[in-house]
Design a protein around this nucleic acid. Structure first.
Lengths: 176, 176
DNA sequence: GGGCGCATGTAATGAGTTACATGATTGA
DNA sequence: TCAATCATGTAACTCATTACATGCGCCC
């Protein structure tokens, strides 16, 4: 949750924006980094405004619907740096949901387990490919770093699956 | 959420248990795999019972407090296999909270960024060490697989930090 | 009899998602 | 005029967490 706050503050620090804009950037450019949904972002922006971290000014200027442009406040900048420092120094526990499945792998016949993990590996490969051709940086070099980090983890995941599959296949045909 | 259901069903498939027992195993042996808290587990068990996936029978046998022993039902086993297959074949999006921080790294002076990432790397190293001396397997070989997988990812994380730090340090002293 | 371990929860709170609602403008 | 896009949400629901509550038995 903190990371979503950091994301919004960071985006507003780079440039004042209205909610729709923010949601567009998230959907189109940052889909790899967060899965925050639109209503969540709108609600968070309101909470940030209530906390005094951002300011809202209505703007039904020339354009069509009235929009609410948010800008970061000095207190918001402080908050941004606080969250940023905390998150950079912190190592998230890194719980992968799929690991629970791995735990019970031996409940299935080896052959099927291999098939399923192959499918998983294929999906990981696809995701890697989609990250690799990500649409260049928009918000500075940090985004590249983050993307690279995500890629490194996914490649490790793929490699681990490779070795696990090799081992599983190795023990499969013994019992026949 | 599905993975928590899978975890409980898997544990009950291996052996009928009461809630307290399950929570103990989770706290003591599976702390690396899930962060589910006690009240959550109790509530989930009730939901599973309501759904007909597990059966509950009260047992105020010899021992002290009355306990509720849960056993998996045939429908529960079906559900278990369904969830297991889905999760084995599925590649979770793998969103790491810390990546958001990385995105805004350039908002800090290089030197400080390096210090903070060093701290993060240290924490990752500690976590790796704690996983490495994990208390052997309890629930079959699958647990070892899952642990190994988690370790592989953490080692990749550590290695990536190493290379990123090297690069950052390389560009630091230019501007002085 | 006082504290610890066993065993089960409840209540309050908050965060997030999905699906839906609303209304204005622009282009075909 | 109809659909798409812009722009903002609300309502209902689910899930999870935290902090607290309860009560029994065992051991010192």
């Amino acid at each position: 949750m903190d990371e979503r706050e950091l994301l919004l503050l960071g985006m507003l620090k780079a440039q004042s924006q209205h909610g729709y804009q923010i949601n567009e950037v998230i959907e189109q450019n940052l889909g790899h980094m967060t899965d925050m949904k639109k209503p969540t972002a709108y609600a968070l922006l309101e909470r940030l405004a209530a906390a005094g971290y951002v300011e809202m000014r209505a703007e039904h200027a020339g354009a069509r619907p009235q929009r609410k442009v948010y800008s970061i406040t000095p207190r918001g900048e402080q908050r941004f740096y606080e969250l940023l420092r905390r998150q950079l120094a912190d190592a998230a526990p890194l719980l992968v949901a799929g690991d629970i499945g791995l735990m019970f792998l031996d409940a299935l016949p080896l052959e099927e387990a291999v098939t399923l993990l192959c499918a998983r590996q294929r999906k990981v490969a696809e995701r890697i490919a989609s990250y690799e051709q990500a649409p260049a940086h928009d918000l500075g070099m940090g985004v590249d770093l983050a993307l690279e980090h995500a890629l490194a983890l996914m490649r490790a995941d793929h490699a681990w699956l490779e070795s696990a599959l090799a081992r599983l296949k190795g023990m499969a045909p013994v019992e026949k």
